[in-house]
Amino acid sequence: MCERGLTLIELLITLSILSVLLLVATPRIGEQIEASRTRAAADQLLQAIQLTRNKAVTTNRRATLRKIGNWEAGWEIFYDRDFDGERDGDEPAIAIGNPIKGVEIKANGPLANYVSFVGTGESRTAGTLSGGALGMGSFTICSANGQGGYKLTLANTGRVRQQRISVEDC
């Protein structure tokens, strides 16, 4: 009679190999999760910028994307009727972005508090319906654990370019 199965020694060897593989793979899984979280945050902000520009162009009105507290805490998109870059009570929200955890978002220059688009699709600072200085600048979205990130660069035409950046650039 032939019996099939594993001996205790074979089972212990298999378990020890699996535990070594698990110890090697665990840090990489954490890095992948951080990289994925950072990429998702960059994509969410990029989509919010594109939606704001799209709303401005399709309605020929000034549309603004403004941070709520700080950029990680979320943002709101609205039609800026009085062209001041601030959402007032008579300016309903078009969309609201949820808070993002595990990343740091920094904006330079005119993008520190808001991004505003006029009906032609150009990014402009607050001012008049179609006026205001050009609203060019960039966002850096970095992992809170220092693993690099992404940079979103807003051109004067209103187009956004996304690129990967190193830990040193964060």
Rank of each mutant, 00 (worst) to 15 (best):
E10T: 11
R62N: 11
S123V: 01
C170A: 01
S123W: 00
I29T: 04
T128R: 10
P27L: 00
L111Y: 05
G146S: 10
S138Q: 15
V57A: 05
L46R: 04
T153F: 01
I33M: 13
V103C: 06
S130P: 01
A155H: 10
R61K: 13
V20H: 04
A73Y: 10
P110N: 10
I105N: 14
N156P: 15
I33T: 09
W71Q: 08
P92I: 10
C2T: 14
G74W: 10
L21Q: 01
Y150V: 09
L22R: 04
I77K: 12
R28M: 04
L51I: 05
A155I: 06
S166D: 02
F78M: 06
F139C: 08
L12A: 07
D169T: 07
A144C: 00
A56P: 13
S143Q: 00
T120K: 13
A133L: 07
V103G: 07
P27F: 00
C142K: 10
L12N: 01
Y79V: 01
P99H: 07
L46N: 03
C142A: 13
G69P: 05
T64I: 01
Y150S: 07
T26C: 04
N98C: 05
R87M: 12
L21W: 02
W75A: 03
G131A: 14
N60Y: 08
T7L: 14
D90A: 08
A126R: 04
A93R: 15
R161P: 02
Q50L: 10
W75H: 08
Q147A: 07
S16Q: 04
G135R: 14
N145L: 12
L134R: 08
E76I: 04
A112W: 07
N108L: 06
D90R: 11
R161M: 06
I94A: 05
V24Y: 04
L8P: 07
T153K: 04
G85H: 02
Y150P: 09
I29Q: 04
N108S: 11
E31G: 05
I96M: 11
T64M: 06
L152Q: 12
